[in-house]
Amino acid sequence: KESVILEKVIKHSLQSRWALWFFKNVKSQPWQCNLRLVTTFNTVEDFWSLYTHIQLASKLSSGCDYSLFKDGIEPMWEDSRNKRGGRWLITLSKQQRHSDLDALWLETLLCLIGEAFDEYSEEVCGAVINIRAKGDKIAIWTRETENREAVTHIGKVYKERLGLSSKVVIGYQAHADTATKSSSLSKNKFVV
């Protein structure tokens, strides 16, 4: 009983409760059946106990995704908190799966749970990592494409946190555009 009380005292609460989702592509099943909620957490300590017990992203098979979203927001365009939003997209080369992917994803998670985007952190819905044979992708999703100031602030901070060179340009795409076009052809609404 004492240890339960102590645990509550010493755990470090996060600003938001977060939900980790796992997607595994089973083609015989509808998309939504392949998406599972793993768990939710709202302390720094519980984040790490989850992170250290799940497979690294680079070890997942092609077609799998992890998503970390604020609890209550589903990791899909259709969710009312996502549908007017978009994503800052990081596309990686095949070689980067072994050199960079896990570090970039961890940094993305730390940006989210640490509320790295200052007063604009409320605009963040979540982040997704897609493991794909043709090249992996990581993205931070925000709720409203029209909030230009918030979106560009988030993009600038995110790019800096990932340690990307100033020569690298990352783009922000509206989900509404991605949903109607082949994702690789979606045009960037903003770049940083």
């Binding site: 240890s3 645990e7 749970i113 952190s121």
Partner: peptide, 20 residues
Amino acid sequence: GKRQYDRDFLLGFQYMPACV
């Protein structure tokens, strides 16, 4: 106020033993 944590603070908890 908002609970903001920088990366070094968060990383400091990575290898702490879990509470039992």
